[in-house]
């Protein structure tokens, strides 16, 4: 029983990361109705920037907001420069561009910072949260930060004009233009926010998995699974989905002998396909009606 609870707690902690990535996925999906396959690599790159700043001796709590800002600007710029020209291109063109970005970020990270793994310190410290606690300081910190991000997003979308405008642009771009919203600017904002959230996820997970250029691929897959499970149109759903994926992954790794500790990716595949088939809208998402 103790093992069971411990695994659930650990699952919730990793789930926090997936939840963060899933949030970023949902942000992009809301903005452009695509899944950004380069999301993980962008987050990885942001994390390297954070590592570099820490190497330069900047204190963590200066680096953290600074990297979020840089990532926001970066995401915004990527949309303006790379995606704006092809906004009406078919899905396949978008996917190829995502793959291209994937290759570019991966390659640049390896080129600038080489492929050796790097340790990133936790801002929350090491060790258990309190004497004999099942949950570590960093794990608790991850969960806390994820919930704060969710809360901030909720506030932004509910109480601010820009948030309302972004939601309107996502629901009905044409009508949004008719009330004077600059829809393409909203798209770019969505990219910036997704990139910033991805940076948060990257900085939170780096102390756990170590920093290296390929660290995010499987995490992105879990993030996708979380987003799909929770519903691609719902930030809250994405966070819940992320936590569920974390718990399921941990329990399956512990109790299904075939899978073991290392080989848990097929679970994500299974989850994604199952959710898409059984409940494509996810737990909290809206069914997207496709017009012909």
């Amino acid at each position: 029983m103790e093992l069971f609870i411990q695994q659930i707690v650990a699952g919730v902690a990793t789930g926090a990361i997936y939840a963060c990535v899933a949030l970023a996925v949902v942000m992009i999906y809301q903005a452009i109705h695509h899944l950004n396959f380069a999301q993980g690599e962008m987050a990885m790159f942001s994390t390297y920037i954070a590592w570099q700043m820490l190497q330069w001796g900047l204190p963590y709590w200066v680096v953290f907001p600074l990297v979020i800002l840089v990532s926001f600007v970066g995401g915004f710029a990527i949309e303006r420069i790379v995606f704006k020209p092809i906004e009406n291109a078919p899905v396949l063109s978008h996917i190829v561009i995502f793959i291209a970005l994937f290759a570019i970020f991966n390659s640049f990270a390896g080129f600038i910072w080489d492929f050796t793994i790097k340790a990133v310190p936790s801002p929350f410290g090491d060790g258990p949260l309190w004497e004999g606690a099942m949950i570590g300081k960093h794990q608790a910190g991850m969960i806390g930060v994820t919930l704060i991000v969710l809360l901030l997003l909720w506030g932004f979308f509910t109480f601010t004009r820009v948030g309302l405008a972004m939601r309107a642009a996502a629901v009905n771009p044409e009508s949004a233009r008719l009330v004077g919203i600059r829809v393409s600017m909203m798209t770019a904002l969505g990219w910036g926010m997704a990139s910033a959230i991805g940076a948060v996820a990257g900085m939170l997970i780096a102390p756990v998995v170590f920093l290296e250029p390929n660290m995010m691929l499987s995490i992105l897959l879990y993030g996708f699974a979380g987003a799909v499970l929770g519903g691609l149109t719902s930030p809250l759903g994405a966070v819940i989905g992320g936590f569920i994926v974390g718990v399921v992954e941990n329990l399956a790794g512990t109790y299904i002998p075939v899978i073991g500790g290392e080989l848990k990716l097929p679970i994500a595949l299974f989850l994604i396909v199952a959710v898409l088939l059984v409940k494509p809208a996810g737990l909290l998402g809206r069914r997207v009606v496709q017009r012909v």
Binding site: L164, V171, N172, I181
Partner: peptide
Amino acid sequence: FTTLSVEENLQL
């Protein structure tokens, strides 16, 4: 804006 509330539509 079908998924937004009536009042939000007006604010927009």
